[in-house]
């Protein structure tokens, strides 16, 4: 009786799995073997691996993502650690999460104002005697804004890992004579490593694909894998090449997931 009902109510979910999870992945792989003229070909991959532009772009994209992740981690770990010790920490955590609910585009838009030639940062630089600098449309501004946007997504998993940790380990460590430094490096940090890993995953993968930031803040000077895909799909209409870069991005994503372990958690505020 139960199984029959189960078969009925499972239908939409199974359809979703087939149509929106499995089919799109297969289609993007299929499309990567289609040339501009619509025939089956390996040309897209040949072009990709023969062209120094594509390879350099991929390398740069990974390098940017790495730098962004590193900066975000260095800022976020202490913040999560301190946050876990505060009173009313759930309230403070909500305040960390709140900026992620503000539309990403609006945050990027704010930085167009802040970093612009006559914007606040340049006013300040002028004031302290350095003089105005070109800030918008540079590598620096791209990395800064990307890091700004990703910070909450790193703080959350680290905070959760620290919070889930059994506090008696800390008491035990202190009772056994470890000083604060030893307790941190040998007990707390290893136990929070899972959070760090999910955080790295949640920051690194989107950093490879943030095309709106490279457009608005990087001013087309920074090209990431995401930008290249968007360019091929929406501007040059070369879907085959776009899909090929997409396959490269999927492989990069699988690699980073392999390195950071089995954790499959999404960025955003799902905690």
């Amino acid at each position: 009786m139960m199984t029959k009902a189960r078969r009925v109510y499972s239908i939409p979910y199974v359809l979703w799995l087939l149509l929106f999870v499995i089919a799109p992945v297969l289609l993007i792989v299929y499309q990567s073997f289609i040339g501009m003229d619509g025939s089956y070909t390996l040309d897209n991959y040949k072009t990709y691996f023969a062209s120094s532009t594509y390879l350099r772009m991929t390398f740069n994209s990974v390098l940017y993502a790495f730098l962004i992740t590193l900066i975000v981690l260095v800022i976020s770990y202490p913040a999560a650690y301190i946050l876990n010790k505060t009173k009313h920490k759930q309230l403070w955590l909500m305040l960390i999460i709140l900026p992620t609910w503000v539309n990403l585009l609006l945050k990027a838009y704010a930085f167009i104002g802040i970093f612009s030639m006559h914007g606040s940062v340049n006013h300040f630089l002028e004031f302290i005697g350095i003089g105005p600098k070109q800030l918008l449309f540079t590598d620096f501004s791209f990395i800064f804004v990307a890091a700004y946007i990703e910070i909450p997504f790193m703080i959350m998993p680290i905070f959760n890992a620290l919070e889930e940790m059994n506090p008696s380990f800390i008491s035990a460590s202190v009772d056994l004579g470890a000083n604060a430094w030893q307790t941190f490096w040998q007990v707390i940090f290893p136990l929070s490593l899972n959070g760090v890993k999910s955080g790295v995953q949640a920051v690194f993968i989107p950093s490879l694909s943030l095309f709106m930031l490279t457009r608005l803040i990087g001013g087309n000077r920074v090209i990431t894998l995401g930008t290249a895909i968007e360019e091929h799909f929406m501007v040059t209409q070369n879907w085959g090449m776009g899909s090929t870069i997409g396959v490269v991005l999927i492989i990069a994503m699988l690699a980073i997931m392999l390195v950071t372990g089995e954790k499959k958690k999404k960025r955003r505020r799902a905690n």
């Binding site: 149509l19 993007i28 989107p206 694909s209 776009g242 899909s243 994503m253 999404k266």
Partner: peptide, 18 residues
């Protein structure tokens, strides 16, 4: 969880093809 970890561009591009 595939759609949760995939980058947005991949989801967008593959849905467009779909």
């Amino acid at each position: 969880n595939i759609l949760m970890v995939s980058p947005d561009v991949i989801i967008g591009a593959s849905f467009l093809i779909f």
